[in-house]
Each structure stands twice: as structure tokens, then as C-alpha cells.
Write a protein that binds this DNA or RNA. Structure first.
Ligand SMILES: Nc1ncnc2c1ncn2[C@@H]1O[C@H](COP(=O)(O)OP(=O)(O)OP(=O)(O)O)[C@@H](O)[C@H]1O
Length: 1028
DNA sequence: AAATATGAAGTTTTT
DNA sequence: CTTCATATTT
């Protein structure tokens, strides 16, 4: 297999004919000193935009041109892929002639290349597979039994700690901690404890013993993990570095060879280099140590526990004789932007080199100064923008962007960037750019599988695999190669639902459907033909063949490549990326069928994989860039928007290492103080220093939560807001009665809006569905995409039916005047005193009812079915026994109701209503069965469900009962949760319901991806899905 | 000032 | 569903 790093070299060769567009810049004195430094270690410390990368590029070029080195005698490394790519591009442009082998790459690529070449020397297979974080998770999950875990594999949730373990192991590898070291450390701890115990026994003995257990478990798991990986020919990212280290340490001849080859080593973004990488570097640089490192501690955003200055200090310790260069001339930003950024980052003092090296100047033969001087004259703009809602913020940012673009004809879209703290926050900006008609690019490194073409293609494959799959069929009907109207689609879905047919089956009957246009009939016929033909083929052909066949015969490929629409070209590039993955898949399995591919794809989705993207900033049409601050590192733009500047977004909330690396094993010098806040500050500093002419700091007050969001702490620190200004702003806000802008997306099609306003009947599950995710509601209730049944549903239905029949029997056998099941008026309350006699219905009878009620649909296998059945049986037995023969005689069972709420109605069915005592005045208890154990308190919404039932029961026009208690019965645990409702509770439920209804009717269906996606029926077709 | 209730959010990155 | 931060209460 060709190593990927090799391909990069090939890419370079393609560009041989391109003119050298970069004229040599006029270097300043300090830059020149660095570039023309001779042999020996060189350290460049400099703030943002001072030409650090330029120095690397120029130095490389100088070494080749002036020193006559061959390109392959130079090794140029950096931490991120993007930085490596950027550097390779710049070098490309700088060198006027071609070259064979240029070693510009990430540490990981370098490690991979070494290991592919020399795998055999250290007993690795040359065709090892690299596991990313998701695949590591999957791997541990699959081999969980082979680990000796106790604490980290709790019985109830054996997979709970897998992610944490993967993180932990990865951290250890960054720090170059071997399993042997870890084990030795634990052993040592044990010895220490035993000695301490011998001297005096303390209260702590127990907890330290536990702690030791835990550490032992971890160390052993770490060893097991590594052993299992190697046995199967897998390496994780950390191994790429650590195994290379091992290679160099144990095979001196190999090391010697590369020491001779790489006469000069250059490292960019040195501040982010981890311990293992630095160790590798030192090994390779010796004994000549022609090692150039450039870095800026204030831009360290990837390091372990925020060890931002650790590397550079360490370098100085290792190479005290190094030449040091400090750059202070900034070629990017205007002076006021630089000053603001510098003032800001000083809040991280004293954990900064500017301070630390001042104190220890003996070692460093330069004064580190981050007080930068702008080479460009004039002053830039630093402004703020405050919007009402999140959607409004996005809208205003785009408005402003257009304004900037139009004000100056020279401005290109490439000059503008919108920065967000996390990929998840980009969505409103994407929608706003779309809406504003601005060409934009979302520069993300993940999310291939959510792209439209990929979702389309996967939907098609799913359909071939099982053509009753409704969600997939719905997606296919929406393909641009067909022209079904929204109205037709809605009608088709609802019709399918009504008739309990799959969409596919219904389509087969299309000639009988009067609501379809002629075009739709034609399209339907064409689609059916395509499905039939391809289903046939998919049994014989490989996935790849099937995909190509589909893309060609459906007209999808033509559609994508017909014109030069950049949007389509973008989709085409995603399609290519996905097809490459399919090719890889075909190479890796024996039978690359559609079914096998789908299975594999689903597994990887389950593990949280979103699909890698390789954003291409260089080529492509001019576009506004939307990206995370991390992704923007090393880039520059005339105008930069830094968005979502509110608490808990930027700075983000701290997430501590869930399994910390033991302090004794940490090799870096980690800083004191609030390391998280300091790291966020550095990130913000990176964001600020991307701007040449303008930074626009934006936020909104209302991000959709119950409360308004406070401005980011950084805005206070920049003195752009004060306590006073915020208080005033809030006061003003509360006086505004305008309708809030909640969505920037284009309005829904007429057909959808029509449908939404035609509805007037709602029920709890609808309102709750909207609450969970409006987009899911749109699929399920507005368009009505039929959803597949689930074991949970069959089971739930069975349990409800069983209990209903059971109590019905109880009632029949109770020797009292019969209460009519259907009577809505005066039930025979006096007749309901719990029977004190022996059980009138036996347990065996209950189980028999259960057997009869059992619905065996939708269980994936007989085994699973049996498990569920057992669960129900256990629950019922527990339920029966706990009553000790004293079963209440219910007043109502499965009682349907409808109540009015303004001009709407809310319907539902109440599982059971019991009298509280024989005294009719004592009122009633409303009961609702829930499968599950009810370990956690019900959510607010679940309580609303009970309250809505309560409202119905006490409504004089409905049941007219005195509702005293509202209860959930959790069948798994046979536990209860009861509310004794008061007036305000009922009022709150009403308000909530009305609120939901109004929102639904407003036609806004913005997705709220998150945990809900895990159980969503439309996961496979949803472009907003998120699995974490 | 500490205890309890409520609400929001579930990173960023490395082939 | 769980965790963590903030708001509110005592
Ligand atoms: N001597 C110079 N004369 C003119 N322009 C220069 C000079 N040195 C660097 N630049 C320009 O300054 C900008 C920033 O340079 P570069 O990206 O190398 O800085 P950097 O220190 O690596 O930035 P960052 O720390 O943000 O990654 C680039 O546009 C570059 O072309």
C-alpha cells in the first residue's frame, strides 16, 4: 500500500509547471538572521504575524539555494495537517524549480512513513492500519472481555468508560509513557504504601488501597490495549510517534541513516509539539543539532494541560547554546489590533515567556517581547455587534459582511472570515450565508457523512437493501433528479401512513393516486424501474459498481456536473471523497456487497464517526470562510468576525480529564492557575490576531435557553462591556415586545406551512416531539414520513394492553355494581373500596393475559425477543406480588379524552384512574405506566404529560373528577413517582402546551441535534444529526 | 457562605 | 443520561 505521505510528494510534482508566484519578501534584520543562521540549534520566538512561517519557508529555500542542500536533506515538521499543507504550498510557490522529494509533513505523517518503511525491523506488519479515535473506541468495545477491568467496567454500563480510557491512553502516548513505565510506577506506589502502612495505619489506608487498585487496573489496561492493537496490526495516532521512537532507539542503524539524510530539521508551531514528538526530534537532530524551531507560546492551543511554555523552556534547557531570535515586526495587522491583543494576552501572566524569560534572562540571549510593531500604517477597526437572538446575530453578521464587501470593490469574499468556537455553533451562520446569497465555505475537518450527496447515496443503498425503509425512500423521492412537489410528497407520506403501506409499496400503486401530477407518475415509474433493476444488480455487483450505475442512470451525476455551479462542484468533491472510501472498503473485505458496506457504515456511525473532510482553502471559488478558531490558526483575513461571545460558549466550559494521567508520570511542566481559562485566552488571542484590518466581536442575548446569556468574560477583560452596560442592556431587552427572530433559514415551502396551519388537534407526544427536536417533528408529523417500529414500542404496547386487560378482569370479578367502561359521567365510586379478600385474579392469569397480548413484531432476533419477554414477565410478577392481593378497582381504563385549549384541542388516553378511597369526595389518582425503571426524576415535560391528563380528568366537560394525585408507575422497578398537583402546576402545563403549539404553527423547524439523535427514526437521512 | 435547585451542554486536534 | 456551572435559597 502506498503511504499517504508519499502521495503528498506526488501532489507537489504536479505543480512543477506552475510559476513561482511568491516573490521573495524583503526580510527584516531579525528574520534575516534566523533565515541565514548556519549550523546548530536555532530558536525563534515571536508573536503572531511576525513571519514565523515565512522564516521557515525562506530558510528552507536559503538552505537549498545558498547552502546547496538537496530538498530531501531537509525535514520540516509541524503539528497539524493544515499547517503542513499551508507550509508545503508556500514552499511550492517559493521554489522556482521542481523537486523530487520534499519532506514537509506532520509528525504523524513522518512517523507513518518511517514505520511503513521499517516495520519489519521492529516486528510490525508493513500494512498496519491506523485507528482514529472512533475506531479505537470500537476496538476496545469489541475486545472488552479481554481487559481485566473492574472499576472501569461497571456492571450496568460496561461501555461507560471506553471513551475515557481511549482519551487517557492517548494522553499517555503524547507524553511518551510506555506501559512498562506505567506499571513500574504503580508497583512503586504499592511499595511506598506498604512501607507507610507498616509505620502507622491511617484512616486513609482504605482509600489509598482503592486508588492503587484503580491505578493498577489502568496500567494493565494500557498494556493490554497496546498488546491487542499490535497483535492485530493496528496502530493509533500516538503509536505513530512512539513506535518510531522505539524504532530509532532499538535500531541504531536506521536512526543513523536518517540522521545522515536529514542534515537540517525545521519545526513550525513548536509550542504545540508534544513530549513524544519532541523526543523524536531530539533523537533525529543529534549529534549536529541543526535544529530550527519557531513558536509562539501565546498561540499554544493543543497542548497537554495547557503546558504552553514548557517546550520552549525545555528547548533552552536542552540547547543552552542555541541562537535565539525574537521577531517583533508584524506584517499582518494594524497597530491598534496588535495593541489590543497584546494587552489582552497579558492577563495570562505570569504563565508566559515574555515574563518567564525576563526573569531567567541568563539562559536566553534576547529579550522576548510580544509588543509587536505594525508594518502596515493606519489603524484598524475593532467593533462589537449585539443582536437579540442567535439567528439574528447570524443575520446581522452576514448583513455586515455584505456591507463591507460592497463598500470596497476590491474586497474579495476570501478576505472575510466568520470564526466560531465550536463546529456546532456554525449552523446559523451557514444558513444566514445561504439565505444572503453569499458564497461561503464551511471549513471543517469532519462531517462528510452529513453532506447532501453522501446522505443521498447512502439512502439509495439502504433502499436497495430494504425497499420498505421509509426514511430512505423519502430522501430518494426528494432527489433533484425527480420533480415531486412538496404537496405530493406530503400526500404520499400521509397516505402511506394511513394505509400502513411502505412508501415503496404505495408508489407501486401510483396509477391509482389521484393527487399525483403527470410528471409525478412518470417519475414514479422511472424510480420504480431503477429500484427494481438495481436491487437485482446489488446482489451480484460490488458497492462501487452499484453506486456508479445509480449515479449515471438516475441522472444524478449529470445534474451535479452539468453547470459550473460552485455548490454542485462542492458536492461533487464530497462524492469523490466518499467514493474513495468505498474503494478502500472494497479493498479491505472479501465480499464488498451493498449490505456489507451498509453494515460497516452503520457501525462507524454508531461509534460517532462523522466522516473526514479535507477542506481545500487554496483552490475553489472565492468564498466567505466559516470555521472554528482552531481551524483559522496560521491564516489571515482582512475582516474577521469572532462570534458567539457569551458565557459558556467562548470561553467554553471546562471539561476536565475524566481519567487524569498520574502527576508523577507527567513530564511537562504544567502551569498553575486556571489553565482552562488561560488556554481559551490563547485561543481568543489567535482569533484576534487573524485580522488585518477589522475585528468584529459579536454576540446575542438570547441563545434559546430559559435565560439570557451574559457576555463573554473576554469582553469584560477587553473593557468592551461593563457590569453597568450589561444591566442596562438587559433592562432594555425586557421592554422589547417584538417577535423574536428564531431562524435564519429560508421559510418553509407553502405546502408545509399549509399543513401546519391546517392542524388543530395535538397530543402530548407531538408537543414533546417538537420540544425534543423541531426538525424531527417536521419529518414525523408534518411530512409524515412513516417510521419503522421498534422493540420498545411493541413491548410498551404489550405491557399497556396486559395491564388494561388485567384490571378489566379485576373489575368484572369485583362483586359490585358494574361500572361501564364507556361511562363518562358518574362512575360507581362507592363501589371501589379495595377488595380485602383474596386476589380475585391469579398471577397465572395475569401471565396468561400477557402471553395473549404479546406483540412479536419488530424484534431483531428471537434471542432479543426472549430477553424482552422475560423483562416483561419479571415486571409483571413484581407488580403483582407488590400488591399482596389488594388490587384497586379502577374507575377508568385507557380512557380517551379531548380538552380545548383556546382554538386548539389536546387529545390523549389515560392509562388508569383509581379512586383514592371509598369516599367519593376523596378524589382520584391518575396513573400512567412507563416502561423503564424511573431511576431519575421525570423531566419537566413528563410532568406536563401528567398534568395535561389531570386537566382533562378534572375538566367539568370531560370527566369532572377531583384530581388529587398524578402518578407514573415504572414497570421495570415497580416504583412510583407521584405529584400532588396545585393550581399553578396546571397553569404551567397549559402555558407550556400553548407555547409549543404556537411555535409549531409558526413554521419554524430548526434542528436541535444532540442526544435525541440517538433514538431518532430519521437519523440516517438527517443533515443536522449529531452523535457524540 | 454553604446547600439546593435549575438549566444547559455534551470541544478543539493528530493518518 | 450525566455532568458541571450558575441561580436561588437558607
Ligand atoms: N519581511 C516581510 N515583509 C513583508 N511581509 C512579510 C514579511 N514577513 C512576513 N510577511 C507577511 O506577514 C504575514 C504573516 O506571516 P506568517 O504567516 O509567516 O507569520 P506567522 O508568524 O507564521 O503568523 P502566525 O503566528 O499567525 O502563524 C504573511 O502575509 C507574510 O507574507
Amino acid at each position: 500500500m502506498v503511504p499517504k505521505t508519499g502521495e503528498k510528494t506526488v501532489d507537489k510534482k504536479k505543480k512543477l509547471t506552475a510559476p513561482a508566484s511568491d516573490f521573495s519578501v524583503q526580510l527584516n534584520e531579525q528574520q534575516k538572521r534566523a533565515v541565514e543562521h548556519g549550523a546548530g540549534p536555532l530558536l525563534v520566538v515571536a508573536g503572531a504575524g511576525t513571519g514565523k512561517t515565512t522564516v521557515i519557508v525562506e530558510r528552507l529555500s536559503w538552505l537549498i539555494k545558498e547552502k546547496g542542500l538537496r530538498p530531501d536533506e531537509l525535514l520540516c515538521l509541524t503539528f497539524t495537517d493544515k499547517a503542513a499543507g499551508e507550509m508545503a504550498d508556500r514552499i511550492d510557490r517559493r521554489l522556482p524549480y521542481g523537486y523530487i522529494d520534499l519532506w514537509v509533513m506532520t509528525f504523524h505523517s513522518f512517523g507513518e512513513r518511517m514505520l511503513r518503511e521499517h516495520a519489519i525491523d521492529i516486528g510490525l506488519p508493513g500494512d498496519f492500519t491506523i485507528l482514529n479515535e472512533r475506531r479505537q473506541n470500537l476496538f476496545i468495545r469489541q475486545h472488552l472481555d479481554e481487559f481485566n477491568l473492574k472499576y472501569y467496567r461497571p456492571l450496568g454500563q460496561p461501555t461507560k468508560f471506553i471513551r475515557d480510557l481511549v482519551k487517557h491512553f492517548s494522553r499517555c502516548k503524547d507524553e511518551a509513557i510506555t506501559p512498562e513505565e506505567y506499571l513500574a510506577f504503580v508497583k512503586n506506589e504499592r511499595l511506598n504504601r506498604d512501607q507507610a502502612d507498616f509505620v502507622h495505619k491511617t484512616d486513609e489506608t482504605n482509600s489509598t488501597a482503592q486508588e492503587l487498585e484503580r491505578l493498577t487496573e489502568l496500567a494493565e489496561a494500557y498494556q493490554t490495549y497496546n498488546r491487542l492493537l499490535l497483535e492485530r496490526g493496528y496502530l493509533d495516532f500516538g503509536d505513530l510517534i512512539n513506535q518510531t521512537l522505539r524504532l530509532f532507539k532499538t535500531r541504531p542503524a536506521v536512526l543513523e541513516r536518517y540522521r545522515e539524510q536529514f542534515r537540517y530539521l525545521l519545526v513550525d508551531e513548536f509550542q504545540d509539539t508534544n513530549w513524544a514528538q519532541y523526543a523524536l526530534l531530539k533523537l533525529l537532530a543529534a549529534p549536529n543539532n541543526n535544529l530550527t524551531v519557531v513558536g509562539d507560546d501565546d498561540q499554544s492551543i493543543y497542548k497537554f494541560r495547557g503546558a504552553s511554555i514548557s517546550n520552549i523552556l525545555e528547548f533552552k534547557r536542552d540547547f543552552p547554546q542555541s541562537a535565539d531570535v525574537v521577531l517583533t515586526e508584524n506584517y499582518r495587522s494594524k497597530q491598534n489590533i496588535l495593541d489590543q491583543a497584546h494587552a489582552f494576552i497579558q492577563l495570562n501572566n505570569p504563565n508566559r515567556l515574555e515574563v518567564q524569560l525576563q526573569n531567567a534572562q541568563a539562559a536566553f540571549n534576547q529579550t522576548v517581547s510580544k509588543q509587536l510593531q505594525a508594518a502596515r500604517r493606519g489603524s484598524g477597526v475593532i467593533e462589537t455587534l449585539v443582536a437579540d437572538t442567535e439567528a439574528d446575530e447570524a443575520r446581522q453578521v452576514l448583513e455586515k459582511a455584505l456591507e463591507i464587501k460592497n463598500a470596497e470593490p476590491k474586497t474579495s469574499w476570501n478576505d472575510l472570515a466568520i470564526l466560531v468556537r465550536a463546529n456546532d455553533h456554525a449552523e446559523p451562520f451557514l444558513a444566514a450565508a445561504e439565505r444572503a446569497g453569499a458564497p461561503y465555505q464551511f471549513v471543517a475537518s469532519r462531517g462528510l457523512y452529513r453532506k447532501v450527496v453522501v446522505l443521498d447515496l447512502v439512502a439509495w443503498l439502504k433502499l436497495l437493501d430494504d425497499y420498505h425503509e421509509a426514511a430512505a425512500m423519502y430522501r430518494v423521492l426528494n432527489l433533484p433528479v425527480f420533480s415531486f412537489t412538496s404537496d405530493e410528497l406530503i400526500d404520499l407520506n400521509h397516505e402511506a401512513r394511513r394505509r400502513s403501506l411502505s412508501l415503496y409499496k404505495l408508489l407501486e400503486l401510483h396509477s391509482t393516486l389521484a393527487f399525483l401530477s403527470r410528471q409525478a407518475h412518470q417519475d414514479g415509474e422511472r424510480l420504480l424501474g431503477l429500484i427494481r433493476r438495481q436491487t437485482e444488480q446489488s446482489r451480484r455487483n460490488t458497492v462501487q459498481k452499484v453506486c456508479f450505475e445509480f449515479l449515471e442512470t438516475s441522472g444524478y451525476l449529470t445534474y451535479l456536473s452539468r453547470d459550473d455551479d460552485p455548490k454542485k462542484l462542492e458536492q461533487l468533491s464530497y462524492l469523490n471523497a466518499f467514493m474513495r472510501e468505498i474503494t478502500d472498503f472494497e479493498r479491505s473485505v472479501r465480499e464488498p456487497t451493498v449490505a456489507a458496506f451498509l453494515h460497516n457504515h452503520e457501525l462507524s456511525l454508531e461509534s460517532g464517526e462523522e466522516g473526514d473532510l479535507e477542506p481545500n482553502l487554496e483552490n475553489g471559488p472565492e468564498s466567505l470562510k466559516i470555521m472554528t478558531v482552531h481551524a483559522a490558526k496560521g491564516l489571515e483575513f482582512k475582516h474577521v468576525f469572532i462570534t458567539n461571545l457569551v458565557e459558556r460558549r467562548f470561553p467554553s466550559t471546562e471539561r476536565s480529564e475524566s481519567i487524569p494521567v498520574p502527576d508523577a508520570l507527567v513530564r511537562e511542566t504544567v502551569p498553575e492557575g486556571d489553565i482552562h481559562l488561560q488556554e481559551e485566552r490563547r485561543l481568543f488571542y489567535v482569533a484576534l490576531t487573524r485580522a488585518k484590518d477589522r475585528v468584529c466581536l459579536t454576540r446575542a442575548l438570547d441563545y434559546g435557553g430559559a435565560r439570557l446569556k451574559k457576555p463573554s468574560a473576554f469582553l469584560y477583560e477587553l473593557k468592551l462591556v461593563t457590569e453597568r452596560s450589561v444591566a442596562e442592556e438587559r433592562k432594555r431587552q425586557s421592554n422589547i415586545l417584538d417577535v423574536k427572530i428564531r431562524s435564519v433559514a429560508a421559510p418553509e415551502p407553502e405546502a408545509i406551512l399549509k399543513r401546519v396551519s391546517a392542524e388543530s388537534k395535538y397530543d402530548y407526544s407531538r408537543l414533546n416531539a417538537y420540544d425534543r427536536c423541531p426538525w424531527q417533528y417536521r419529518y414525523a408529523y408534518v411530512i409524515g414520513v412513516p417510521s419503522r417500529g421498534k422493540p420498545e414500542f411493541s413491548y410498551g404496547q404489550t405491557m399497556h394492553q396486559t395491564l388494561h386487560d388485567f384490571f378489566h378482569l379485576i373489575r368484572q370479578r369485583t362483586d359490585r355494581p358494574q361500572t361501564s367502561l364507556f361511562s363518562q359521567t358518574t362512575p360507581a365510586v362507592q363501589a371501589t373500596k379495595p377488595s380485602a379478600t383474596k386476589p380475585s385474579v391469579k398471577l397465572a392469569e395475569l401471565l396468561e393475559i400477557y402471553e395473549r397480548a404479546w406483540i412479536s413484531e419488530w424484534f431483531p432476533s428471537e434471542v432479543k425477543l426472549a430477553e424482552w419477554k422475560k423483562r416483561g414477565q419479571d415486571s409483571l410478577e413484581k407488580f403483582y406480588e407488590s400488591h399482596a392481593g389488594q388490587f384497586p378497582v379502577p374507575l377508568y381504563l385507557e380512557q380517551p379524552f379531548t380538552i380545548r385549549l383556546n382554538e386548539y384541542t389536546i387529545g390523549g388516553k389515560i392509562d388508569r384512574i383509581d379512586p383514592i378511597s371509598s369516599n367519593p369526595e376523596a378524589g382520584v389518582e391518575i396513573l400512567d405506566y412507563k416502561t423503564g425503571s424511573g431511576r431519575t426524576e421525570p423531566t419537566k415535560e413528563q410532568k406536563f404529560q401528567l398534568l395535561l391528563y389531570g386537566l382533562a380528568a378534572r375538566d367539568p366537560n370531560v370527566l369532572n373528577l377531583k384530581v388529587e394525585r398524578l402518578t407514573f408507575i415504572y414497570l421495570d422497578s415497580n416504583e412510583r413517582f407521584t405529584i400532588q398537583p396545585a393550581e399553578p402546576d396546571f397553569a404551567a402545563a397549559k402555558t407550556w402546551a400553548l407555547n409549543q403549539i404556537n411555535q409549531i404553527r409558526s413554521g419554524e423547524f430548526g434542528a436541535t441535534p444532540g442526544v435525541v439523535c440517538r433514538t431518532c427514526d430519521y437519523f440516517s437521512i438527517c443533515p443536522f444529526r449529531k452523535l457524540k
